[in-house]
């Protein structure tokens, strides 16, 4: 389980996050939504250790990892994807996932062959047809699947996904939603940042709404969808439309 408490991040004179707390329980998909610039990616960066918050703590399964470096937090089971693709552009789809599997295999006590794991993940995320392609030959939607595959190759206990469905078409998004539920049902805590509200409503057990660096509301998707503060600040009055 992931627990982030009182996270504040300041960029010069701008308070990007102010006293943000969020939980992501194991076995569930937790949503994090908010308009552009709300601070969602900044929160991910603070949780994973890519930036140092000015205040707050991060706990993984009850252990305080706030002072740990990025790679040390990863070794506590934290994996993520990126809003802007961070693919290894000189490598193929298979090699991208294999790099993550190899690195994980080196420090993890879990047994297993990274090569076998790589092939399993390629099948699981639906990239078998393009496994030998260089990642630059893929459209953004499939690139996001490669990032998901790499994260899964680390056998995460907590998975942070930053707009993983952007660039995917409707069919791909549906398939992706089923995959997320399947990943969560194996005991992984999934924290999902996503603008596709239908996906969020479908897969998330709980949703946090972030706006201007502050948590506006927390609750089940249906409840959040009806929350007037959220409607006003984020969704607007037309609940049928995308943000």
């Amino acid at each position: 389980m992931l627990e982030a408490r009182g996270i504040s991040v300041r960029f010069g004179g701008h308070m990007a996050l102010s006293d943000v707390s969020i939980d992501a329980p194991a076995g569930q998909v937790t949503g994090l939504i908010g308009p552009n610039g709300a601070g969602k990616t900044t929160l991910f960066n603070a949780i994973t250790g890519l930036l140092t918050p000015s205040a707050g703590t991060v706990h993984i399964d009850g252990r305080d990892v706030t002072r740990l470096k990025l790679h040390r937090r990863a070794r506590h089971g934290l994996a993520r994807t990126f809003q802007q693709l961070e693919l290894f552009t000189m490598l193929t789809v298979r090699e991208n996932i294999r790099v993550a599997a190899d690195i994980h295999h080196r420090w993890s006590p879990e047994p297993g062959d990274p090569g076998v794991l790589t092939e399993e993940i390629i099948d699981r995320v639906g990239l078998a047809a393009v496994a030998g392609e260089r990642v630059t030959a893929l459209p953004t939607g499939q690139g996001r699947l490669v990032e998901l595959g790499r994260a899964l190759a680390c056998r995460p206990r907590i998975l942070l996904l930053d707009e993983p469905a952007s660039g995917q078409d409707e069919t791909e998004t549906e398939r992706f939603g089923r995959l997320l539920v399947e990943v969560a049902s194996s005991g992984t805590a999934v924290l999902l940042v996503e603008h596709d509200m239908s996906l969020v409503m479908e897969v998330c057990s709980n949703v946090h709404v972030l706006d201007l660096g502050q948590i506006l509301a927390v609750g089940p998707p249906a409840e959040v969808q009806r929350n007037p503060v959220v409607l006003d600040a984020y969704l607007g009055t037309d609940t049928g439309g995308a943000p």
Binding site: L70, H71, R75, E86, L87, F88, L91, N96, V99
Partner: peptide, 21 residues
């Protein structure tokens, strides 16, 4: 070698796999 090439593109991503760069 694959790891070095990966680091060339994104050290941040490699670190999120647990790699001490």
């Amino acid at each position: 070698g694959r790891q070095l090439v990966a680091m060339r593109d994104s050290e941040a991503a490699c670190a999120t796999f647990g790699l001490n760069l």
